[in-house]
Nucleic acid binder design. Sequence first.
DNA 1: TCGACATACGTAAACGTTTGCGGTCGGAGG
DNA 2: CCTCCGACCGCAAACGTTTACGTATGTCGA
Lengths: 331, 331
Amino acid sequence: MRITIQAIATHLQLSPATVSRVLNRREDAFISQTTRQRVLRAAAEMGYRPNRAARALVTGRTDLITLALNRVRSSYYTEVIYQLQEQLRRDGYETLVGQMAGERDTGLDALGLSEWPTDGIIIVDPLSDLRPLARGSLLQQTPFVCIGTVPIEVADYVVVDLDSGAREAVEHLISLGCRRIGYFAGKGVCHPGDARYDAYSRTIQEAGLQPEIIAVAPATRSHARAALCDYVRDRGCPDGLFCFHDDLALAAYRALCDLGLRVPEEVALVGCDGIQETQYLEKPLTTIVQPLESMCALAWQYLQRRMQDPAAPLQQTILTPCLEIRPSSRR
Amino acid sequence: MRITIQAIATHLQLSPATVSRVLNRREDAFISQTTRQRVLRAAAEMGYRPNRAARALVTGRTDLITLALNRVRSSYYTEVIYQLQEQLRRDGYETLVGQMAGERDTGLDALGLSEWPTDGIIIVDPLSDLRPLARGSLLQQTPFVCIGTVPIEVADYVVVDLDSGAREAVEHLISLGCRRIGYFAGKGVCHPGDARYDAYSRTIQEAGLQPEIIAVAPATRSHARAALCDYVRDRGCPDGLFCFHDDLALAAYRALCDLGLRVPEEVALVGCDGIQETQYLEKPLTTIVQPLESMCALAWQYLQRRMQDPAAPLQQTILTPCLEIRPSSRR
DNA sequence: TCGACATACGTAAACGTTTGCGGTCGGAGG
DNA sequence: CCTCCGACCGCAAACGTTTACGTATGTCGA
């Protein structure tokens, strides 16, 4: 039988209130040192564990944080989950993972998130357009922070500057002498209004080159790999490829291997996000590295502030990403 | 203000009990069709969401499942989290992630797991020796199931046959003509008693070859990469390398590239677990593929059974893994 | 007509915590 | 000696559900 505050109280001839106050270390309450020690000892000896449900019921807080992830299975998320979980835990929070259904709907069910009322939400999604979500009731009621993407302007976030990153990457390809630079991305993000798309198009046109969009759906690795093969067989191959994210870049790398095309001699390859995997290829990928660890730390800091004060001033950070040039685009 | 069962009840001139019964679809209770419909409509219109904490308090169930992961950041876990979260959600459960601290201790804190009392635990850890953990109080109280490793004999699990997998892999290297086959692994698992270690040693010796252990700690990618480089420079290079898991194999691949050694001509490389990443190299890695999707499905099935009947007979499945021979060991 | 039984719903206790309010007791100040 | 205040602690309500049990109504067979 689980032991409760009541049990400790009767055992020590105290009231549950006193025990609770001791256990919660409320310094606004006056508790004598002796009883404090007695309670602490008894709790330890009897192996007391608080009933979180009961506490949540009365306080309204659950000490749970939702990690809202995109459905895409990229090792980007492994890193993020690891980083955030460590930090949340250190501050006494538990991590609930949820995967968002997509961009269509704004309800909680469509969000695919927790029915448990969590104290905060960390949205991690470098891919989708989250603006519709932000209008949903969930995000109106629960404090949240975004990593990697911005749902609405009036929200807390930590992002990298997609525009300047993409621009730098494309300029890098141009400086390499590439004349036919393709943009390899999921269909959902190939439209004016998307930061990377815009940056790519503008930079290409400013250089007097022709944009060339290679859009795949679904943007999974295996499909992207096959799709790029088909594309190249039909229309020939660009001499430079800028990929929306590293998963696509890796799929592209593999597809180019399949086709017998040499990287970087025949095709220079650049990805985005800087997932670990890009370093373990024979030709490590050039990629726009996101400083995930500090991004996660900062985001959590922002969320905590927001939770304790919903009216706190907006907290927004735009980091300038770092284009790390590696052999896949070194000539 | 959140709306409660009470609110619905007074609004419809019913008792909370009736509303609750309707909302929980209890078929052992007799509710007229008309009131049922009225309650359902009102709940929908008023936007009722159950208070999970209150429910948990009285039922003792939280509809939460802990996913206990190893601290190692492998994309193995990305896949597992994705698979399990999808399935749990479909059955009305939420996913709490926890990272286990290690093998040393057996307490809940050392486990690094949730303070929230979850209904079940899924332990995913292809690396550690979990036997000490199983003696801890947490696993005595909460139903659990293991994927990829076995904490104790009297537990539910879904694993692959490490022994036969490793044996097959090593035999494959031998049949390739390798005479100096190294075993590349983390220090913690390089000892008699570990299934893969034993299988490796036995197979090597049966073939009249000399075992050669290359143990690294910590077994992170970046460290493993550097460690293998050092090792090879000091003592020369084996002509075959069997790696404890794919992360190490990828690190090895990278290290061999650094050293200018050709895979598979000079060194044949074999990994374990079959993470997605192994397919996206220039020379895809030979690896022992684990059927993760079906493993997750089966494990969840086992756990559900165990949750509803703690005395159910043991559920144990040992899958024979599949050595998928790819270019990294094709001569 | 009378009980038995099925159906439909209400009553109230219980889950374990937190917390506002009040009470007691000792000592200091007037 | 009375008052007042601060330290320490208990009382009891409240959080929103679930569920065992009880009650009321209607139906049916004897």
